[in-house]
Simulated assay, not measured.
Amino acid sequence: MQLNIHIIIHPIIQQLANKIIYHKSYRNKTYNDNEKTLGMLILYETLRTWIKLYNFYIKKVSFLKEGNYTNKDEKCLIITDLIKHHNFFTEAQKILPEIFLQHIYINKNNTHDKYIIHNIDSYDLSKYKIIIFDKFLNSHTIIQIINYLSTNTKINVNNMKIICLTCHRKILKEIGKKYPELNIYTTKIIQN
């Protein structure tokens, strides 16, 4: 089975992504607003086929009331470094109220060349659909996170998705070898 890479080609998403990827000043209001908007749009693209919406109809005497709802048991957990990426998900609950954010802290143990993952054991992850976000997918830490989630928490890879603005082809090949059924949503694939 081949890795499922979804390149989001919507013109608005591409335009915002390019502004963020190639922008030099990270401290201005426009940049922050672009990150918030892009985060909401990419999250929408990722969740639109994953979250089910149920319709209901109430027949009144003189009219028909129509509405919809999501299953309260379907919850999403976004795992990311919130210190670096908080702007992308400040508006997330406007899309889906049952979405939760979890900061993940990763540090490298230099003596064993191993990544230590903190803050992830506080959730019963079997109840959640997992979204892992990294702005630029260019290091092996993402593989360490997926390894940790699939072995230590027994999460099925089908309940995980990765979102990134850009990803390196080399990292995609490594993920594809180990987790070919994983879904990755990105705006651009970069050659090494």
Rank of each mutant, 00 (worst) to 15 (best):
residue 40 M to S: 12
residue 76 C to F: 14
residue 66 E to D: 02
residue 144 Q to T: 13
residue 36 K to Y: 06
residue 175 I to W: 09
residue 20 I to E: 00
residue 29 K to E: 12
residue 22 Y to N: 06
residue 191 Q to D: 14
residue 115 Y to P: 02
residue 76 C to I: 15
residue 122 S to I: 11
residue 91 E to G: 06
residue 186 T to N: 04
residue 99 I to A: 14
residue 86 H to I: 09
residue 75 K to H: 02
residue 173 K to C: 13
residue 138 N to C: 12
residue 56 F to R: 03
residue 62 S to W: 04
residue 49 T to L: 12
residue 59 K to A: 08
residue 11 P to A: 00
residue 155 I to S: 05
residue 153 T to H: 15
residue 1 M to V: 09
residue 129 K to F: 14
residue 12 I to L: 04
residue 135 K to I: 09
residue 164 C to E: 04
residue 47 L to W: 02
residue 178 K to F: 03
residue 150 S to F: 03
residue 105 Y to M: 07
residue 141 T to G: 08
residue 50 W to M: 02
residue 62 S to F: 08
residue 104 I to N: 09
residue 46 T to S: 11
residue 45 E to I: 00
residue 103 H to P: 08
residue 61 V to I: 10
residue 112 H to W: 09
residue 108 K to E: 14
residue 23 H to R: 11
residue 187 T to Q: 01
residue 67 G to E: 02
residue 9 I to Q: 13
residue 143 I to V: 13
residue 157 V to H: 06
residue 101 L to F: 11
residue 52 K to G: 07
residue 69 Y to I: 04
residue 44 Y to R: 11
residue 186 T to I: 07
residue 117 I to V: 15
residue 4 N to Q: 15
residue 114 K to D: 13
residue 174 E to N: 12
residue 142 I to A: 11
residue 188 K to W: 05
residue 125 L to Y: 09
residue 172 L to F: 13
residue 121 D to N: 13
residue 91 E to H: 10
residue 60 K to R: 07
residue 29 K to A: 10
residue 16 L to P: 01
residue 162 I to P: 10
residue 150 S to H: 10
residue 116 I to S: 09
residue 34 N to D: 15
residue 106 I to E: 10
residue 51 I to T: 05
residue 64 L to H: 03
residue 37 T to A: 13
residue 83 I to M: 05
residue 34 N to P: 03
residue 3 L to W: 10
residue 97 P to L: 14
residue 44 Y to M: 02
residue 38 L to C: 08
